[in-house]
Design a protein around this nucleic acid. Structure first.
Lengths: 207, 207
DNA sequence: AATTAATTAGTACCAGGTTATAATAGCTGC
DNA sequence: GCAGCTATTATAACCTGGTACTAATTAATT
């Protein structure tokens, strides 16, 4: 009973994997094009999609369009670069950001500085507990280069809140593992209820 | 000849405007739904779309999906942020960068700091005439916030080359019109023929 | 009234599917 | 060797949201 099927006995699982991968790589592919790649009938492709819960081409495009449409409407997915994993307003915060292909120089695999900066800057702004928070100045240091695939952990500490002057000093340290790769001192303007008309560039938006 | 058409005589132009607006507001709307809103036949809707060059629902969704798809895939097209309009290696450079939708906080229309930083940083790196150039440190100031649609002109000046030490100081000023909006002092490591193993994050890449 | 522009109607056709039903192929168990 | 199973393929009807084209109808203009 259930003898291991000597030679191949799971071309289906394999095909399912391939199918998922193909559609993932190119969501714009039609079933007909898939038949040519996978050498099975179009019915098989459709049964496979059914089993795998992969929607038809038009549904896929619609979903993508919806995703991108919402993200235009309510951008704040992107307003903080990196994932905030801890946040104590007006005290400290931690965010994680993995260096992917789109962040590095293709030739060297070294992350472009502004991405590392952006993570730190976003976090510095996010940690300030105010309606509006804007970076006014920063003093930064890239301690070592960060490479493709590395996970940057940024830790921000609010150093002074200076209540009256509506300014905060935030220190950010970014690590890859144990190694510090970046350090920055940020001066953040905060809305003390009313408008800030000079300086600054950022708005905090807790998501 | 061409007497002003007494009462209404341009329900078409008006309808065209409404139609454009409706589709713009909700690109997911079908022609059939539009007939209900505009109280005209579906053929009229389709003629209107034809005249206005508005593609059918499915095309619209596909375009949106494509837009969002490549923006994920090829976000890092430009290794230099902004268009370099003048470059005198080891002396100075100018770049132009227009603040678009994707660079601002949706709620306020204010550019996120790291984009302004990225332009300056890219330029500071580009202006250094060397195989490899990496930002080691920077001291920056956001003088006023930059808003959607504004064109940022960044001017970089190489202040000292300090030949032996393989370090360069670059000053960058970013203007919108006459107004200075950003100022930064960058310290850039340069490859003096051999590797730099500490510090830095950037590679120059003249496009 | 004649002409012209705008609108509506109707038909054929298309892509890229879904749903359902049935026919085959390829082993498996015994 | 054959019933019984899964997997695959085939066939046909139907759906959505259109395009393309032709023709008729309804204003509006001159």
């Amino acid at each position: 009973m259930k003898v291991v099927p000597a030679i191949e006995r799971l071309p289906k699982r394999q095909r399912h994997q391939q199918l998922s991968k193909l559609i993932d790589e190119n969501p714009f592919i039609t079933d007909r094009e898939l038949t040519r790649l996978l050498k099975v009938s179009i019915q098989t492709i459709r049964l496979d999609r059914l089993e795998l819960g992969i929607p038809e081409l038009r549904e896929r495009l619609k979903l993508m369009a919806e995703r991108s449409y919402d993200s235009v409407r309510s951008l704040p997915l992107h307003e903080v670069i990196g994932d905030i994993v801890d946040l104590q307003l007006d005290r400290s915060g931690i965010s994680m950001f993995e260096i992917a292909n789109e962040h590095v120089f293709s030739r060297t695999g070294i992350a472009r500085g502004h991405h590392v900066f952006a993570q730190a800057n976003s976090l510095a702004v996010a940690v300030i507990d105010d309606e509006i928070a804007l970076t006014a100045a920063a003093d930064i240091r890239f301690i070592r280069s960060v490479k493709l695939g590395e996970k940057c952990i940024a830790k921000a500490y609010v150093r002074s809140v200076s209540g009256e002057k509506s300014k905060a000093k935030v220190e950010v340290f970014t690590y890859v593992g144990e190694e510090m790769v970046f350090q920055g001192n940020f001066i953040i303007y905060r809305s003390a209820g009313d408008q800030v008309d000079e300086g600054g560039i950022e708005r905090a938006d807790r998501h």
